[in-house]
Design a protein around this nucleic acid. Sequence first.
RNA 1: GCCCGGGUGGCGGAAUUGGUAUACGCAUCGGACUUAAAAUCCGUGACCUGCAAAGGUGUGUGGGUUCGAGUCCCACCCCGGGCACCA
Length: 870
Amino acid sequence: MAHSGRFNSMATSCKEYDFNQIEPHWQQAWEQSHAFKAANLADRPKYYLLDMFPYPSGAGLHLGHCENYAITDIMARYKRARGFNVLFPIGWDAFGLPTENYAVKTGRHPADVTRENIDTFRRQLKSIGVSYDFSREVNTTDPAYFRWTQWIWLQLFQRGLAYVEEKPVWWCPALGTVLANEEVIDGLSEVGKHPVERRPMRQWVLRITAYADRLLADLEKLDWPDSTKRMQAAWIGRSEGSEVEFDIVGLPGERLKIFTTRVDTIYGATYMVVAPEHRLVSALTTPAQRAAVEAYVKAAASKSDLERTELAKDKSGVFTGTHAINPATGAQIPIWIADYVLASYGTGAIMAVPAHDERDFEFAGKFQLPIPQVIAPADGTPVTLPFCDKGGDVRLIASGDCTGLTPIQAKERLDARFAAENRGRATIQFKLRDWLFSRQRYWGEPFPIVWISESDYRAVAAAQAGSLVLPATPVTCLIDGEIRCALPLPNSALPLQLPEVKSYQPTGTGESPLAAITEWLEIWYQPATGACVPVSQECPGAGWIRGRRETNTMPQWAGSCWYYLRYLDPQNADALASPEALKYWGMPDLYVGGAEHAVLHLLYARFWHKVLFDLGVVPTDEPFTKLFHQGIILGEDGEKMSKSRGNVANPDEVIRAYGADTLRLYLMFLGPLEAMKPWNPKGIEGVHRFLQKVWRECIGEDGSPHPKISGKVTDAPEVDRLLHETIKKVGEDIETLHYNTSISQMMIFVNAVQKAPAVSRQTMLAFLQVLAPFAPHIANELWSRLGGQPDLNTATWPVFDPAKLVSTEIKLVFQVNGKHRGDQLVPVDITQDAALKLAGAHERVAPHLQGKAIKRIIFVPRKILNIVVE
RNA sequence: GCCCGGGUGGCGGAAUUGGUAUACGCAUCGGACUUAAAAUCCGUGACCUGCAAAGGUGUGUGGGUUCGAGUCCCACCCCGGGCACCA
């Protein structure tokens, strides 16, 4: 708070609690005094607090945002009072589809739309009184920002973590555009409800699977909600098993490789299945079966994922006509094609063990394939098939020389045997797929890549050795039937900016609108400098080569994968952040955002971060060590807020009617922060009344400090004790994110103050400090009017006195046979005998003891005395 | 189907290691102030029996452990979230 000293923090002069006057007044005061500017590299301990990156949509701020930002703002203000140098930044994840779609519709430039949306968002944010350091704002669409997004992407590219592949994407013929997964609902476009289809297109893919093991193992280090860690673990989906290659009858050079987690059941494998997309489908198909196989493969290809998974409960398949040899039994077993085997997992082929797998059992039943049992309970209990044991005490049966072994023993023996035969090994599979990292859109970061011919690439690679890092294996693709190689731009040529375009209309071919901008697209290119001129002009000379820019753009995830690093040093032109800033600030101490990002954003960002760690750019191998998910605010009806339901509460209206302090306080009072909570517009009256009451206790009718507040008063013991309890409870509750109960405690305190005839100024000021993180405007106003020093934003958090919390008397509960029969104030250190005597004399307790023999006495000091009779 | 999270008054919710269930707030009803209203303040506030004092029953359902269970154990029901032919 280096700049806050000079501002004259005068209060307003209103007599009533006029929040419409008070709140803008203080918001302006904080802005002018730069009250929340984080100091770079200060001596104080740092605290880095981060909200999930907002997308500045045209719809503006909703209550969910307010909840999120109130949680972190309260923590930020509290940590500042605790003496931390707090970094509490905000910025804009501003590339993305809604803005582009809006721009297409209105014919306006997405950059203009984005700027307006950000202005609205920022103004709304300020109106709820958040203490962000706005001097560190970042914006993903700013070339000074995405220069580093492109730089990081180049590091991935150069390390061989980015490649190009033809991958199916959603294509909508009616809209003439490619759609994102979330724009496709039940096989129809979200906009216009047109049918969509799968169409293969050239895509950039990031090799996140190379980090699968570390992404899974390092979850253990993170202080995250367990449910989120479990979700990521399930998404990564590590699975230990075996690979086995089966010989194929009539195809001597080929083997069919499968993955199984239960190699011990191989004696029960009576057929095999390959996915319709498997590379050997054609080779395996006999002439007699060809027509049937081709029809099946074609049908499978035209099915959407939805049809193949959720809708396809029935098993389907077709026999190839070819057999494989089960390496355990030597038996010939048929090879089928069926779409219940996924091409994208494992090897795209399985050995089917129908007796011990539900899916295989169903399939075998439908096509009358044998179902021999090879696993049985150790105690010989008969079982019905399919018998899918999950680690019970079982043994192999009818399994040759493995008969009698446990599955674990059998796996070891079979893995070793197949390894010796050079046909198998123990192995690990992941569900995690590589990350499709391109969009056929305009409003995203361009890839800093130029596609050039193979011969040019070889020449550049030779000439630039050392200065331009190329991936170990060139990334290539086919453009107009020719092989092209991906050449990265030199760092000096970053950022690669988006060209100005007249129209954002889709091209109609599925390619990005960038593909239509020939001047930008087709260039003469100088590899050493990254300089270019349109190919319509003459080639500038030697060393210039013909190139074509990449027309895909990056997905919205790109900018949000590393923004938390840019806040540390947002203006740095030489690096994404300086090593000093990275060292001082480190990673966020607390990251707050919705659970809807549990997998994608949080996994992608971890991946990029680990790559940056491996490069030595960042000092830690995990970005977000402590994570908290706020719950969703539901509509009044308990349903998710949505325009179509008409149950949306608008924060602007709430602020107008009650003020930002009331809104903040009420959102926090609603219930546990992590819980889903319905919005109840009636309940807000309660917290508003609380703030009114605070005002009335501090300010008299004429607007000057209330006469009951004085520097000379000695507080009533009750008020004094409650103050210290409140300081203690609120501090603890903020640290543990249990804000709702700290508000209850503050209400209890104010109720006590109200009953006291007089209260000391020191007590009232200490309370205002405790209230300040939650309701900063009214707290600043009252602090200032009561003459609090120094400025409230620089005052240190009040200290509670533990001595004031221990009372000499406590209420001891008397129970007879475990039932509450009475209680009495007693000295804290009362003995059992003395307590028993009191209980015996207690008018409510005594009748229950009358004429009964005491069997047992349980005495818990300071809590209960339980007398067990008869 | 599998994996999580959760069921407490009319409502949102509170309750260290098992130790007074319903704090705080909303709504309700009654009272004070007022010509009246608003605002404010005081009180009421689970169910059954009872004039009362008091007693009994109560934290989704049914069992169990314990002197004592919202809290621990077993079985089940309902709601919410995630994953879903991953071999």
